[in-house]
Design a protein around this nucleic acid. Structure first.
Lengths: 142, 142
DNA sequence: GCTTGAACCTCTAGTAGCTAGAGGATGTAA
DNA sequence: TTACATCCTCTAGCTACTAGAGGTTCAAGC
């Protein structure tokens, strides 16, 4: 039986985060000691590792919920899991494409700035006028 | 004089967002009609365009605040603005590097999945066991 | 058995950057 | 004057946590 602190260390997840996952139903309610402290078993350790790893790969908590559900039904076809992963891959690729355009623009801004007064600053000038941009970029919070 | 609705359309910013920017002090308090409705001038339109464009390039609201301050002081050296842009460029490059690693892993997951039962699903298997990953990836919310 | 202190508990509030909706007031054209 | 689009404020919600206050429990050493 593992305490929350041990589970936290083993998975690299903050204790508060573990409680949060329990609260939103991503982790099951664990057993408790008589005094009310949480105690975990290995199945729960595995589940948390799964969640953690999925988060590192950028899956949303909702997507992880779906993946966990699928994982609990070994005899279903795995197309759904595959679809979720493909969706995630697509998102990652879209984000990369956007970042690439932003990088181009930022590089240009920075390179053209010759270090004079802010009145002549190329960085500020570009920000003032979108039409100076060579690339299109219209995603906020990409 | 522009209404908030017109400003919203011209800049592609939601009305609520404009009010939010005012609330956090990023946009100045505009004039009001007798009845209390906001009316904007061209300086405010320019300012909002600047904010909007900076957001599209991924700058945080805090960074934008700094950039706006600099922009208001035409005689100061523009090194600070340049530094902010460089910082942003660096962040973008870091995010791209992380996404690249994630993409590699996701691609591998998806390609290896042959479409059987979830019990044998490669996608789920990889998520269960980080040691199967060929690349390192340890950024959440990249 | 008792003490001590690390680890645990719950609860609230905060983070970024908005977004949605309720319920009501205003502006403007016909 | 009437209709109704647009505006107002206020509250609460979103994602995915994180921090901290104030109090309780566990386990090891004496």
């Amino acid at each position: 039986m593992l305490t929350i602190g041990t589970l936290s260390k083993k998975t690299g997840t903050k204790e508060q985060t573990i409680r949060y996952y329990e609260q939103i139903g991503l982790m099951p309610e664990p057993g408790r000691t008589e005094g009310g402290q949480r105690r975990y078993d290995n199945a729960q350790l595995d589940r948390l590792s799964f969640i953690r790893h999925s988060r590192q790969l950028g899956f949303s908590l909702d997507a992880i919920r779906e993946l966990l559900d699928l994982s609990d039904q070994p005899n279903r076809p795995c197309e759904e899991a595959d679809a979720i992963a493909r969706r995630q891959l697509k998102q990652v690729e879209q984000r990369m494409a956007r970042l690439k355009a932003l990088r181009t623009e930022l590089k240009r801004m920075v390179h053209e700035c010759s270090g004079g007064r802010t009145a002549d600053c190329k960085v500020l000038e570009v920000l003032r006028d979108h039409s100076e941009c060579l690339t299109e970029h219209d995603e906020i919070g990409a």
